[in-house]
Design a protein around this nucleic acid. Structure first.
Lengths: 251, 251
DNA sequence: TACATGGTTTGATCTATATCAAGGCTCGCA
DNA sequence: TGCGAGCCTTGATATAGATCAAACCATGTA
């Protein structure tokens, strides 16, 4: 049972031509007739910021791709400690063919629109159109790489490095979507609260706040309001992140 | 270039009937003629404990499955901090179709035999036999789940919980292979040095040692020598691990 | 206009784990 | 039989980040 009610589906991106599904997800290389089969089984759901899409352990009878907004996957321990294990930006994919129940809480962090496919028919499409499975394998391998990057961050980076890493990660994803820049500087709007950042990074929210302040004091970032960040020198930020230089370059 | 020399291939498991490949990896559901195609392109390599299989960034022109022994994937930061991001036990798979170079250091932690497939022909097999791709997708999704479990461990668990978790993880994998038990107690031989454990857990080796001693003092585990561990009450260990109860049960 | 709320910042203090340092055990080898 | 190399344990101390606590700020609302 879903513990949230689905908001009525908006009709944005109803044409798969605009839909991120086409760009990254399941039908990147599909022929038109394959696309048509996906068209037939897809539908949209939207959620308000803060709503839960599925609870861990609940039945999840669809797979989906994020159209707009942000969602997170998190794990919770019995005593309430929480760790984010997935951050879903537009074009990212959730759900596992062949699994009945959700393994993680899926939460809309902002207003969210997802393009869903009922699982059973989706699996049928996968069986008959190898492209879809191939694309899904590629995407899953990418996610696995990202998860391993994330493990390095969680296991070995300092709080300051963690924050710098997160800002760099979001800036890179953001840039590839929107390409917001101003006179060489990179501009990002953090799509996460301090608390969500702390769940991403395995820190407390106080530490997140302090380290953001520290990066600002040191001139690595500039902040307007709470969320709007300017990065005057992206390479400097990457240095602070402790990253092995070219771990996914910007621009 | 490989910085290690390959040991001459042993002829164990030359028949795919015995090979873990058949059990878990690429040909679980393959027809005989598909199996034959894999047979033709497979070869074995062995490594001594401590040898590096591939260095991160080096060319890697094969994918492989572990036949016997243990290998690890690790990431290293410029200043030498290391984080393990993959632990490969028999039947696990390494390598990414469609990628030229290794993303991580792959190291033999014990004497190791791998069943390798040259990448190009393997990719050809994948294109023509959907079973192989499907199986690989399943395995990759399993690995992604494991990585996310690991992220919770790295981000939120205490040192004691981390150690308990690792012992439980190894015991479960081990049990499914060997089923070593003595009068209800579970028996494991740790396949890792304290240092390797610390790289798995995001701790120092001193903390690993101290926490193992603490678990012994508290009667959660019994130790003979350095590596041989008896777990009198597995449920108690799982409690110490802070795991959400049934996260993959033993037996 | 006051006042409650949610997200955020900052300060003071505490503590789990890292760091530095020494010594122990085991095995192979001279 | 002694010695060195790896691996492991234990102790003393330092510190990064957690925890506890207070206050700030913007927004919505009574």
């Amino acid at each position: 049972m879903y513990k949230t009610s689905a908001a009525p589906a908006k009709t944005v991106h109803l044409n798969c031509g605009d839909c991120p599904i086409r760009h990254r997800a399941v039908c990147a290389r599909c022929e038109d007739d394959e696309l048509r089969r996906l068209e037939e089984i897809k539908y949209y759901r939207s959620f308000e910021a803060g709503q839960t899409v599925v609870w861990s352990g609940d039945r999840m009878d669809f797979v989906a791709s994020v159209v707009s907004g942000i969602a997170t996957l998190t794990q919770t321990m019995e005593d309430g400690r929480r760790q984010m294990v997935g951050l879903l930006l537009p074009s990212d994919f959730v759900g596992r063919p062949g699994r009945e129940t959700a393994a993680y809480d899926v939460t809309a962090t902002s207003d969210l629109v997802m393009c869903c496919f009922r699982k059973k028919p989706f699996e049928d499409v996968m069986l008959t159109t190898p492209h879809v499975g191939q694309r899904l394998l590629e995407m899953t391998l990418d996610e696995l790489d990202a998860a391993r990057e994330w493990m390095l961050l969680l296991g070995r980076k300092t709080a300051r490095e963690k924050i710098a890493s997160l800002i760099a990660i979001i800036a890179r994803r953001d840039a590839s979507l929107n390409n917001q820049r101003e006179a060489g500087a990179v501009v990002v709007d953090l799509p996460l609260t301090r608390e969500a950042m702390s769940e991403y990074l395995g820190l407390t929210l106080e530490t997140v706040s302090r380290q953001i302040s520290a990066l600002r004091r040191d001139g690595i970032i500039e902040i307007e309001g709470k969320r709007h960040i300017t990065i005057p020198d992206f390479d400097r930020l990457v240095e602070e992140a402790g990253d092995d230089a070219d771990g996914g370059f910007l621009v």
